[in-house]
Computed example of a mutant assay.
Amino acid sequence: MEPPAGGGSLAVESLNRHRYLNSFPHENSTAFYGVNQFSYLFPEEFKALYLGSKPAWAPRYPAEGQRPVPNVSLPLRFDWRDKHVINNVRNQKMCGGCWAFSVVSAVESARAIQGKPLDYLSVQQVIDCSYNNYGCHGGSPLGALTWLNETQLRLVADSEYPFKAENGLCRYFPPSQSGVCVKDFSAYDFSDQEDEMARALLSFGPLVVIVDAVSWQDYLGGIIQHHCSSGEANHAVLITGFDKTGNTPYWMVRNSWGNSWGVEGYAHVKMGGNVCGIADSVAAVFV
């Protein structure tokens, strides 16, 4: 893509940002930042285009109405990808539909964990039809899950209703159309309880979370430990696993910016300390 006019100042700003982000003392596992597919954007543009999730309040665990988390013992490493129940990373393109991608990915995996085929389901259907959200202009994963649960809408295959990276008119399908319904979901605030969150991941499947991803514009790899507070949740993603085998334990976080971003489409975020607000608003999905 062509850089915008005045690219000189953008390049300087971009390099200054990378220098600042990389200026923390380097432990082996600290994240590193640099030029990637978003470097041609000013931070305001990046935020407007790619960070389309609205913050959502979830009740502190344990609370009434939440599915209790079984007290399972935690392995040192766990990743749902190893069980072949996670689809390849998708690309939301210039559509602020991260909230829909995270929810649909969770539904795909919940279904596959039950032994059904791992299919790509329609993100576009959620973008077009979830009347309590704003399509490519942003939305709330918890809002989408509430809507799916209340309407019992069947999510159809991606091939039936493909992604077009813009808002469209909602297409309705006959009752005979096969698809996947969300039977239930549970929302949690796991801040200061990330071991409970890991147990939920192990017991229920991949978790939808909302994070502050402003500094993710420049992320190249390593474990994110600094530069992002839980100040403002703005991006919805899916946690598929964790790794506690090294010096810095981390969550494996599946993004929707294509597989050339980060670590093959994933971010690694330090476990403990609620980095990026990763434990504030967490949802498990049941199909």
Results as ranks from 00 to 15, higher is better:
Pro4Tyr: 09
Gly7Gln: 12
Ser9Asp: 12
Glu13Ala: 13
Ser14Cys: 14
Asn16Gln: 15
Arg17Cys: 13
Arg19Trp: 13
Tyr20Glu: 15
Ser23Val: 08
Phe24Ser: 12
Gly34Tyr: 09
Phe42Cys: 00
Pro43Leu: 14
Glu45Lys: 11
Lys47Cys: 01
Tyr50Ala: 10
Leu51Asn: 08
Gly52Asp: 05
Ser53Lys: 03
Ala58Ile: 09
Ala58Tyr: 01
Pro59Met: 12
Tyr61Cys: 05
Tyr61Leu: 03
Asn71Tyr: 07
Leu76His: 12
Arg77Trp: 03
Asp79Ala: 06
Trp80Lys: 13
His84Lys: 14
Val85Ser: 09
Val85Gln: 09
Ile86Phe: 10
Ile86Cys: 04
Arg90His: 01
Met94Trp: 02
Gly96Tyr: 06
Gly97Ala: 15
Ala100Lys: 03
Phe101Lys: 09
Ala106Arg: 10
Ala106Asn: 06
Ala106Gln: 09
Glu108Asp: 09
Ser109Glu: 03
Ala110Gln: 08
Arg111Pro: 00
Ala112Cys: 09
Pro117His: 09
Ser122Ile: 03
Ser122Ala: 11
Gln124Asn: 04
Val126Ser: 01
Ile127Tyr: 04
Tyr131Gln: 05
Asn132Pro: 07
Asn132Asp: 15
Asn133Ala: 04
Gly135Ala: 11
Cys136Ile: 07
Cys136Met: 07
Ser140His: 06
Leu142Glu: 13
Leu142Asn: 02
Leu142Arg: 12
Ala144Tyr: 03
Asn149Cys: 07
Thr151Arg: 11
Gln152Asp: 02
Arg154Cys: 05
Ala157Ser: 14
Glu160Ser: 15
Glu160Cys: 07
Tyr161Ser: 06
Pro174Gln: 08
Pro175Ala: 06
Gln177Arg: 12
Lys183Ile: 02
Lys183Ala: 14
Phe185Ser: 03
Tyr188Pro: 04
Gln193His: 11
Gln193Tyr: 05
Asp195Leu: 13
Glu196Arg: 08
Ala198Met: 15
Arg199Met: 11
Ala200Asn: 06
Leu202Asn: 00
Ile210Trp: 02
Ala213Trp: 05
Val214Cys: 12
Ser215Arg: 09
Trp216Pro: 01
Tyr219Glu: 06
Gly222Asn: 04
Gln225Gly: 11
His226Leu: 13
Ser229Ala: 10
Gly231Tyr: 11
Ala233Asp: 03
Ile239Thr: 09
Thr240Glu: 01
Val253Cys: 12
Ser256Ala: 11
Trp257Gln: 09
Asn259Leu: 00
Ala267Gln: 11
Met271Glu: 10
Met271Pro: 01
Gly272Trp: 14
Asn274Pro: 05
Cys276Met: 06
Ile278Val: 15
Ala279Cys: 10
Ser281Trp: 10
Val287Asn: 08
